[in-house]
Design a protein around this nucleic acid. Structure first.
Lengths: 203, 203, 203, 203
DNA sequence: ACATAATCGAGACGGTACGTCAGGTCTTTTG
DNA sequence: CAAAAGACCTGACGTACCGTCTCGATTATGT
């Protein structure tokens, strides 16, 4: 049986392999630069210089600046995710929100997040990646909700709940008019759990 | 009564006045260009050219491109706002959300909104203005909520409700993963009205 | 007899007269600014501001920036000219050259001269005025030469001598590779007097 | 003998090399544009456009517009120089002057020369380069004079002669009040040769 | 062993947009 | 009706990044 799998190209690879050190150096440089830049935009040239790498090495492996940022971010986010599995929906929801808010309060994550959005705002490629990324987060959240079927009203609009959660998160994160505090996380978790249990109100 | 302030400067303005035609031409050109551009970024040169105006005239009155977009937008938004005054909180909330969603569905408004965000993503000046703008929208919404004191639980977290509403709005608007439909507006209005009435749940 | 003189127009002037103070303020401001600027270009706005005058007032009376500079210059040059009248051609020539060189060494004159050339380099109007100005200087020099007919060879090429003198002057003045010293003035005066007496050499 | 300096850099050049085609295209475009423009100023954008080159490629290699013009000019001047070597000083001088005048009469050269001066008038960088350029021309002329030591008076002021020649040249070239004719060249050559032979006149 | 092939750092390239500056004109109010 | 103030249009400037394209050098297979 011929294996059409991803990592089995028809013809074995010839030539020099990708330099893993370079990859790491680039992602690290991105994080360092973002942390130092204090919100100022980071350019490709700067990243390449800081990583001791040619620009082409970046463009060879990532389609755009935003893609690099995104990869750097997911590396970071992996630590934070920790899908909770508790007794009640409200507890799970609250701990999920709290973790999310805390991740965004860490300056290291926040800087990447912010730059990522900046990039997505003008690079359609980056925008696509952000869309995929946020999609996967929503899926995770939806799975969490689905894990408590007995606490969900039959006609509960899960998408509405998910989008309220992430909407509020991004809205506060980007505008920073109000902190992403643990208190807010608790209140939001409780409110959304209540919404899920109540279901849609009859018109 | 001599009132020396407000509109009574000690010495009248001397020199040529600001050309109101130019101002209108610029704002109009922005709207037209955005509508035509189909999401592509619009440059200052293009605006100036289309308005039959020198670039400097734009920079004389607005600190950045985003500021122009914002002014163009508020001109548009003024028509949409229409603060409702109905019987129930739920009805008012729903009609407010519906109006907001509908405004964003109109391509003319949506294009400006989108470009505005794009600008804010890289022009700190524009970002500030967006902050002010969104602040005023939140205030309007909060006023609407405060207009129904008897339907609010004593410990209701109005800021949370406001941010859930606008958070979801922007989240869906920018990611476009789900439509800002009238149905969604109804559901959101109902859910938030219920939340406001229930107040915070005890931990 | 009607006097066609400059300041007696046929029909009495109607309306406000030209403000002589403004004229002087402008010319003075030019000189001051040039002296202070140390060679840096001086703009019309700066002049207007320094003279406490509207830009239009400058353009009402002078066709371009260069024209203002030129008028400021001729005011200065008038003091320096002093057409000499001595015994010998050589003495007269030497004292003429010396006076010219000395005028250019005075920083006040030099700054104007330099800015004037700068202007002429890109303002055709100013260039015309410079042409007229230099023409008048050449005429003065030619008159000086003609004042010693007995010391001139019949076929002496006066234009050549004049241009050698002023050519060297401007060349050294603008390039500043060699000083416009009194010694140089003496040597040049002597050499040109000799040349004038010898006439053209047969080919 | 290991000599690590001069033309033996430790590490060979890395990165893409300068594109010689672009360099030529730029210089050619300058000449063509100047010839066509008929004295009107030529902008960097126009040059870049005409050469099919990015503006930055010009700024990468030349510090200012004047520098580009100068390089274009020296390319042209190289053909004209032809240091003469004849029997008499007068003959050499005359042919040198004649060649110089003729070069300036050719519209192709004249346009570059004129624009070069225009640039030098406001770009200090270009002014420096012009100074270097004229310096080299004076050196060439001084070498020519030194080639006839027996025809020079012991106290002859060579610099004065050199500056008379080039002074007259530029003076007539820029003011254009009198042509740079072959006749003038002959007369000037003869006069200066006589000056050189006579030496300084005693005071 | 030696050709083939892909990667790497470096950096030049064509472009697009930016925000600034100066010039010269036009307009309003004051004296 | 001139003058001061100052807004206006024009057009060039020099800079910042972008994403692509060479370079020569450096690995890794394949034969």
């Amino acid at each position: 049986m011929t294996n059409p799998d991803d990592d089995t190209p028809r013809r074995a690879h010839t030539g020099r392999r990708r330099n893993e050190d370079a990859r790491r150096a680039i992602l690290d440089a991105v994080l360092v630069l973002l942390a130092e830049s204090g919100g100022a935009p980071v350019t490709i040239d700067t990243i390449a210089r800081a990583a001791g790498v040619g620009k082409q090495t970046i463009y060879r492996w990532w389609p755009s600046k935003g893609a690099v940022l995104l990869e750097a971010l997911t590396g970071l986010a992996g630590d934070v995710v920790s899908p909770p599995r508790g007794e009640t929906l409200r507890a799970d929801l609250t701990s999920f929100v709290t973790a999310t808010f805390r991740g965004a309060r860490a300056e290291s994550t926040a800087a990447v997040l912010r730059s990522l959005v900046r990039e997505a705002a003008r690079d359609p490629h980056a925008a696509d990646l952000v869309r995929t990324f946020t999609e996967s987060r929503r899926d995770a959240l939806r799975a969490l909700l689905a894990g408590h079927p007995d606490e969900l009203a039959p006609d509960a609009d899960l998408d509405l709940i998910v989008d309220q959660l992430y909407g509020l998160f991004w809205y506060r994160f980007l505008l920073a008019h109000r902190p992403l505090s643990d208190e807010a996380a608790g209140a939001l978790g409780a409110a959304l759990a209540a919404q899920a249990g109540a279901g849609s109100v009859r018109p």
